[in-house]
Design a protein around this nucleic acid. Structure first.
Lengths: 150, 150
DNA sequence: CATGGTGAGTTGCTCCAAGCAACCCAGTGT
DNA sequence: ACACTGGGTTGCTTGGAGCAACTCACCATG
């Protein structure tokens, strides 16, 4: 029996129980970047449809995503991050920082995170390199970086 | 065929290819906390021995851990974090922050991260709440928090 | 000197979850 | 009438996780 839980008294383990499964964090990234719909996420990630279905359901159950109809007739749905979901931004930013440092090609990072107000780059402490402000999710946006693909 | 890679031009995806497998991040946490040996990690996490063996091997191959004999006759080994491995600290700190906020019991966080120099708490930006310094891994240490188990 | 214990794994078996393709249903476009 | 799109579900297959047992080298104990 594959235990879904690590059963450890540890915040890292408990966090991984919710977002540590394959694809989960990438789904959250997609939604954060504005890719909110089943078909879009599926195409963007190439994840199996049944797996994506599982992940979305689980994330909704855990209060990380919210499923909302954006039209009726026919009913079509999109997924939005809750506050709990948005609070995962620091985790994503930290991973981007590490990936940029060790895994990006010579062209540089594929994505840049910028401060809305001043356009400065946001570092892995979520501090704007230009103005020094400590930022929250809504203070930043992402643009293709020098290592972005065509 | 289960692709081990996500095959996306994305620092998060590339990072997850290395540290996104089940148990991997917990192994890194253990090593960071000073639990450096096979037996110790296995007992602490309850991970299957063959899986742990895989994970350690992979992490060594990727330059995140270094395997070093701490005695010969009989040969016994321990695993140390490389600089690349230590640089994952921000990811762990971010996860701890989220887990503490959403998943800790009413007693509070199981672990506290403190600034060596002044003893202040380290927040999820790796900034000391007492003195305001921006910290690196070696500037901090962990102690059992109010939610620690017996 | 046989037995047991420890550290660091490896091997074999089982079974769940991921991958894949096909299908479904409602509505819309041509 | 037919195909297409969005948002899934179902069924089949395989790879990886869980578990237990085994190995091997060394040390300690009775």
């Amino acid at each position: 029996m594959l235990r879904r839980e690590y059963d450890l008294n540890c915040s890292i383990a408990r966090t991984l129980e919710l977002i540590g499964e394959r694809w989960t964090l990438l789904v959250i990234r997609d939604v954060l970047m504005g890719n909110r719909r089943f078909e879009g996420i599926q195409r963007s990630l190439g994840v199996a449809r049944n797996v994506l279905s599982n992940r979305l359901q689980r994330l909704v159950d855990e209060g990380i995503l919210e499923r909302r109809a954006y039209q009726d007739h026919p009913a079509r749905y999109e997924y939005l991050l809750t506050e709990k979901g948005l609070d995962l931004w620091p985790v994503l930013v930290a991973m981007i920082g590490w990936g940029d440092k060790y895994l990006a090609g010579p062209e540089g990072p594929p994505v840049l995170i910028l401060h809305k107000e001043c356009g400065g780059r946001v570092n892995d402490r979520r501090i704007c390199e230009r103005c020094g402000a400590q930022l929250e999710v809504r203070d930043a946006y992402a643009v293709p970086g020098p290592g972005a693909k065509a």
